[in-house]
């Protein structure tokens, strides 16, 4: 340890825990499988979102009069503002994709089984928080797309039986979208969600370290189970390289297709057709199949069923079997959901 390191360690006692964290033994079957990088990549993209979000917040004006102009300034006038906003914009999509892929890896590898139930539950919450980030961030530019998509989104919340009106009122801060809505969405997006997400990530990682990686599901993997490499530098370097690759993709996207900014929100506009961000398109499409009195089926029952089944999964599927090809029910159920989401998204495009 260097002189400076010793000085810090003597005063903080951090040396031991940090060494322990970095020397964590990663099983060979994990280190050699790129699918296990998804969690680390999701963490990296969250850090990137937090960093770019802080930079954007320096210039963003959370008022209905100033929001659009401030985002316009960031996008078209501020040096490299287009890049920061572009990374944040496309990073949001990347975070949804990576979170979903990480979740699928966990699901198909049965990594939610005892004793990792809490890790799975925090993962489910993290997925929904990621979607909440997308929903609340959408309104912030105060452009037509964000305004009308939020209008529809909050109306969907309003259609929930019994508590719908109160829920919509809570989200909007009034009967209509306005300054109160923007303030609430901004506070949720930059304070409540990041703090909750960071806390859940901490619990998630602590659980991961406490229980260790879930067992390998293949014979080959099991053979590798006895071999270990230290977390640092092996896994860290792998994830860092993949993270840089992901950053390169985000920069490429930001440079070739600027983060969109529609025209300013006009509450009096009657001809704007609201459309959600691509990761909500499947839901937008599904709502079309449940008109009128059937609406609560799509707005309440189906989301509750999906969320409930995700929460209950580790308590229902308690068997020892972890191989997806030996578990047709869970595998077919997941494939069904994936196909529905892909098909509905394609139909809505």
């Amino acid at each position: 340890m260097s002189k400076v390191g010793r000085w810090i360690d003597e005063r903080t006692g951090l040396g031991g825990p940090v060494r322990s964290f970095l020397n964590y033994a990663v099983p060979g079957y994990v280190h050699k499988n790129a699918l296990y990088m998804l969690g680390g990549l999701t963490l990296i993209i969250f850090a990137l979102q937090a960093f770019t979000g802080i930079l954007l917040a320096f210039f963003y004006d959370p008022s209905t009069e100033g929001a659009y102009n401030s985002v316009d300034f960031i996008t078209y006038t501020l040096p490299l503002g287009w890049l920061i906003r572009g990374i944040h914009h496309y990073g949001a999509s990347a975070m949804v994709i990576l979170t979903a892929l990480h979740m699928l890896r966990t699901y198909f590898f049965s990594a939610y089984k005892k004793p990792r139930e809490i890790n799975w539950l925090t993962g489910v919450l993290l997925l929904f928080l990621t979607l909440a980030f997308g929903f609340t961030g959408y309104l912030l530019p105060w452009d037509q797309k964000g305004y009308w998509a939020t209008n529809v989104g909050t109306r969907i919340a309003g259609s929930v039986p019994l508590i719908g009106d109160a829920l919509m009122q809570l989200m909007r801060g009034g009967a209509n979208l306005g300054q109160a809505t923007l303030t609430r969405f901004f506070a949720t997006h930059v304070l409540l969600l990041p703090a909750t997400l960071a806390l859940l990530i901490a619990v998630h990682i602590f659980q991961l370290r406490y229980h260790g990686m879930s067992p390998a599901i293949t014979e080959k993997g099991k053979k590798e189970g006895g071999k270990f490499v230290p977390f640092f530098p092996y896994w860290v370097v792998n994830d860092a390289i993949a993270g840089l690759g992901m950053l390169a993709i985000l920069i490429f996207l930001s440079a070739t297709q600027r983060a969109p900014l529609e025209f300013p929100a006009d509450p009096a506009s009657s001809n704007f057709v609201p459309r959600p961000e691509w990761y909500f398109l499947f839901y937008y499409q599904m709502l079309k199949y449940f008109p009128g009195g059937l609406e609560p089926v799509a707005t309440v029952l189906i989301p509750l069923f999906i969320f409930g089944s995700m929460v209950l999964l580790p308590f229902i599927d308690k068997g020892e079997e972890r191989r997806p090809w030996k578990k047709p029910v869970t595998t077919i159920a997941a494939v069904f959901y994936i196909v529905v989401i892909v098909v509905f998204t394609a139909l809505a495009l």
């Binding site: 999509s93 690759g245 992901m246 990761y279």
Partner: peptide, 14 residues
């Protein structure tokens, strides 16, 4: 795998 994941990201984001 990384190529496919990257392509999905590119296609979805763009």
């Amino acid at each position: 795998f990384l190529f496919v994941a990257g392509s999905i990201m590119l296609a979805a984001c763009a």
